[in-house]
């Protein structure tokens, strides 16, 4: 007898737990307010899709005079664990005709970068920063190799030194 009671009790218990699960999915079915989907290309116009600390790529901020902070010291290149950064320097004469070493090309391989952030942390002049760009898909892999200092840009410190020298 107790066997039969247990048999039916099992069935009832089973049905109850199944119904508990169905209640949850049913509840979400009728509450569209809970939808979490973000419709991607549409939300592009939103100002902030990603947080402002988002690690999209390594960039080198330039000011309005097209000047940056990079001295070309090469510390970032040394610290990058996977060789994503190559520094090419050149020598140009400064005010007094003395040859100084400045950055020629700060080459950054986005395709190899692991976003560890070491380059940004170690840079003695805070020349690098994180950019929030995240749409990196390209058809040609070579496009992922970027030169971070803009053409014609120069080192901020150099010109300020120049100005100081002039005044």
């Amino acid at each position: 007898m107790s066997g039969i009671i247990k048999y039916f009790a099992d069935i009832l218990h089973g049905l109850k737990t199944l119904w508990a699960g169905m209640r949850i999915t049913g509840k979400y079915f009728v509450s569209p307010g809970e939808i979490v989907t973000e419709q991607y290309p549409e939300i592009r116009h939103k100002k902030q899709i990603v947080s402002d600390r988002f690690k999209g790529e390594v960039i080198m901020p330039h000011d309005e005079n097209n000047q940056h902070n990079c001295t070309g010291c090469g510390v970032c290149e040394l610290n990058c664990p996977n060789g994503s950064i190559e520094i090419i320097t050149k020598r140009i004469p400064d005010e007094n005709g003395k040859m100084v070493r400045v950055i020629d090309k700060h080459i950054y391989h986005l395709s190899m970068c692991t976003f560890c952030g070491l380059c940004i942390k170690v840079c003695p002049t805070q020349a690098l920063a994180w950019g929030q760009e995240f749409e990196h898909a390209v058809y040609d892999r070579t496009k992922l190799t970027k030169v971070l200092n803009k053409p014609g840009s120069s080192y901020k410190g150099l010109s300020s030194k120049k100005k100081e020298a002039k005044s």
Partner: peptide, 21 residues
């Protein structure tokens, strides 16, 4: 995670001695 470290999964946020930032 994204708000603090900028990445969601692989956030190399620790560094010997403390945190990256």
């Amino acid at each position: 995670f994204e708000e603090s470290f900028g990445s969601r999964l692989l956030h190399s946020f620790n560094t010997p001695g403390g945190l990256m930032h």
